[in-house]
Amino acid sequence: MLSRVANSLYWMSRYVERAENTARLVDVNLQLMLDASKLDDKAIAGYWAPILQSSGDDEFFDKLYPKVTGRNVTEFLVFQADNSNSILSSITQARENARTVRDQITAELWEELNRLYLFLNSPKARSMWRQSPFEFFQEIRSSSLLLQGLTDATVVRNEGWSFAQAGRYIERADKTSRLLDVRHASLAPGYTTTQTDALGWSAVLRSCSAWDGYKALHGGQVEPKLVAEYLLLSEDFPRSVRFCVQQLNTSLRRISGVAEGRFSNDAERLCGRLHAELQFSTAEEILARGLHDYIDELQGKLNAIGEALFQTYILQHFALQQEDEIRQQEEQQQQ
């Protein structure tokens, strides 16, 4: 498989996953605000500020908008073309990557992604977003899930598929941790949980589609520690960080053919190590360290894996180019 193609497939599915998670994040906050008792400017800003912080783009937001309002934040996260992480930008980049590997993906997959792109760029999308945001975010989520289903149902399980899987799961691990991070303040030692917090924690669960799974395991009582444990360490919930890292690990090993427990490059080494850490960690340990710090470090580790993957499979083959040019010019001098 061409390195450029592998890179494009990886980013195509990463961007789709990113758009879906942004939709989840915004949607859940909108729902949460329906339950709020009083909503003055300060309360509204209090709802949205953590969302912006978790996206890591809060400073950029402040440059573009005068005030933290629901309208401004959702506009920023959904349609703002200058925000490279907005849903519109993510889907545009996913499609751009898909376009350059049009021959590698199935027609069904391409058509759905293209449809989503055309929808987001149509006037219909903005009017739907204004009139019925729930319907709008449902549309994004459905489309993303449809894309994943199509990938599973139509794409040949070759190397390209493994790169796409790697992109999907590394992004999802990162985003699940960010969704959790939104509520980290109420898990600080010595903090007493309030009624509003309970609502906030169930919103986090719903935003990860984890509500049903959590309930089946722990009943209806939403306990922050258990939520954090479920989203970070669950072995079988498909959006937990541990599950995603395990899938990422499997994908990396499918690409190289190296067995579990061994490694042939840095991406495998770092990913295998992180997976082991997650396997043998407890929620108590994590909370004792501080959830926010833990998540910060986790994101750093995921970034390192992504970087190593790029170095191993994509970049090294391109780095050769310059060397070759020099070599060729040298050869010409001899003639």
Binding site: M1, L2, S3, R4, A6, D103, E159, F163, I255, Y313, I314, H317, F318, L320, Q321, D324, Q328
Partner: peptide, 19 residues
């Protein structure tokens, strides 16, 4: 389907950069 940057020449043979 390849772009120019996917290909390189060594010893007068053309290769594509793969994973």
């Amino acid at each position: 389907i390849v772009e120019g940057r996917d290909l390189l020449v060594r010893d007068q043979r053309v290769y594509m950069r793969t994973t």
